[in-house]
Design a protein around this nucleic acid. Structure first.
Lengths: 191, 191
DNA sequence: GGGAATAAATAGATCGCGTACAAGAATTAG
DNA sequence: CTAATTCTTGTACGCGATCTATTTATTCCC
């Protein structure tokens, strides 16, 4: 019930890609260069990543599952909005001060363009979907649930962006988050 | 001081593209098919649009300039957040009930995929940038300004999406907008 | 041990977007 | 009429992404 074992790993491709992105920028780096440095064939790349842009958002994708789990673990009798706030704090805790996603701190040297921003936003949208689904499950109006999801993730994105930009000496992400996430939830009547 | 006049027009390409998108979906429609139906060469397409995805967001791009102008026209002594709310209402008024962007109402038959969502999000991000710049100009903290911009545009996106989905019998967009935009601004202390 | 069965890696081809460059066609200014 | 300007078109190419087929490595079972 098990075929050929994986000879390469996602991490090898990530590291090769990160090196090349820092050396020559994102746009000028081809998938073939990445796979050559990682010692695999070009096609193998697509066994590990759906596309080139996905290389940069691995941490963000991981944080989505953290968010999902944190929301699922919320007791049923807690206020939904408070649960969202707590879940975001839990998710933020996973991004320790030293481990900011590379793309957020090095986007200048990588030459990030609109395509990349859009790819990041698509990830953020997935987070919003998670929050929205949770709120709908708690009985909130569909429009309001979606609005809260998008608004709160928008605010959180601002916090993460600023946090990453502030460099290694920054305070924990939670500090930034609370400053902007709480007002949004407050506006929607957090209890 | 005037060279060869334009033989084709942006509108012709938009209409040809809309037809094809509705007939066979977005992904299966090639730029060559669009230009052939419009009676021009493939290269001419790129004189009018930077890319294929831009065909669907013409109205949204236009609404960004409306938003920018509305914010610029706000009196200097009005509360910044109230000015944002008013400017969004003005922008919404331009999207009359009958004229929802085609992509928002027909995205099912067009087979919109992730790429399209991302392109729409990039447009929304541009709106958020406009709001952010306005608030920074009014002296708000950089992080807070960005958070408000992203949050309020997120909420507005939810409203527009729902409004479009509700079909021709829907109420005006302003109704949807106010329901979700006001809470966000309220949370940030709208005066 | 020696096949099936399974799954990963590779090779090769193709499609379509987007860019670049050069040449041609239509217009106005002098 | 010529020159300058601007749109249009042709041609070519790089790269991302998909598809199909083939090879290689591993486990399960007889």
């Amino acid at each position: 019930m098990a075929g050929r074992p994986r000879a390469s790993s996602q991490r090898m491709l990530e590291e090769a890609a990160s090196e090349l992105f820092l050396e020559q920028g994102y746009a000028k780096t081809t998938i073939e260069q990445i796979t050559r440095r990682a010692g695999v064939s070009r096609n193998t790349f697509f066994n590990y990543f759906p596309g080139k842009a996905d290389l940069l958002w691995v941490e963000l994708d991981a944080s989505r599952t953290v968010l999902t789990d944190a929301l699922a673990a919320a007791p049923a009798d807690t206020d939904p909005l408070a649960a969202v706030e707590a879940a975001l704090a839990t998710t933020a805790a996973a991004l320790t001060p030293g481990r900011a996603p590379l793309v957020l701190t090095q986007w200048r040297v990588m030459g990030i363009d609109e395509e990349l921003k859009a790819a990041g936003l698509a990830r953020a949208l997935a987070h919003a979907d998670v929050v929205e689904a949770f709120l709908v499950g708690r009985g909130l109006d569909a429009l309001v649930a979606r609005a809260i999801g998008l608004a709160v993730i928008g605010a959180a994105s601002a916090a993460v962006g600023r946090w990453a930009a502030d460099g290694p000496e920054r305070r924990p992400l939670g500090t930034y988050l609370q400053k902007v996430v709480h007002p949004v939830l407050e506006g929607f009547g957090i209890g």
